[in-house]
Amino acid sequence: MSSIPSSVVDADSECLIGGASEAFLRRRAFWNRVAAWLLFAAAAASVLVTIGIVYVLIRDSIPFFEQVPLSEFLTDTQWTPVFKNAHFGVMTLVSATLTVAGIALAVAIPAGLGLAIFLSEYANPKLREAVKPFLELLEGVPTVVYGFFALLFLTPMLQTVIPGLSGFNLLAPGLVMGIMILPYTASVSEDAMRSVPMGLREAGYALGFSRFRVAAQVVIPAALSGITAAFILGMSRAVGETMVVAIAAGQNPNFGFNPLEGAATITAYIVQMAMGDLPHGSIAYQSVFAAGLVLFLITLLFNLIGFYLRRRFREVY
């Protein structure tokens, strides 16, 4: 710095030209640390919130399980927390939840996979760009609208075909939920399929494969991890979805997998209880937390399956 006259650069100013001053380096290190801490805080916040939610779920479930043995909770086939003779068979809610999610997947897997194959392997870029906004629109429909659609449009329509269908049933919300998660599963699967390198497709074509065979035998196996992840996450969403089932599936806790009858799912039960005036600390109040914990565990299980499958079918190319 000595070569620069002090009239041009005063002692406190810093510049990088010709070597940085001590003060500059210190300040830079300080702000680097601040940035690192802020980013760490952002990352930590999400982890802490998750841990906090799990903590509350478990803490408030403990008094419930002190009164209801786990064996009864898992094997009883009645769920009547507010009755005088209360039963707490959570499988009642789980069966309805899985039935709806199963129907949703039965719609979303074939339709989503078909749509993804079409967009990724058949459609030209123009058509693809024209279809995608519609998918996004479908994704943007509020779930309450889907719920009313299931209750007031789809159920009456299905009743003309299936006479035994109740006004509240699991079939209509399941089908609607399938349509609801379709855009998500389709677009995630399509991304996975499009990221399969062209060289792999060329290998298929070079063997004399047709376009469909390339899609089915080359692209899907290579994109399987992404496709599985898409459907597992779709399943998670279907299990956790509340509005559609609360509106269209009814609130009767019925054990069984009959899609023609109405039944309360875990989420529908929680909504029902949360809207009623339950005395704080009552067993029915605590059952909400136990149900929430079960819901959390089911979702966690699906995510773990998704994680395992993703690792097992990891794309290597």
């Binding site: 390198p197 060289g199 792999l200 060329e202 290998a203 298929g204 074509y205 070079a206 063997l207 004399g208 494969f209 047709s210 035998q217 080359v218 196996p221 290579a222 399987l224 079918f313 794309e315 290597v316 190319y317």
Partner: peptide, 20 residues
Amino acid sequence: PGMVRLRIGMVFQKPNPFSK
């Protein structure tokens, strides 16, 4: 083209085995 490729095989620059 499909008929041609059933008769003429090809190996590429980068190994590209299928995910099988």
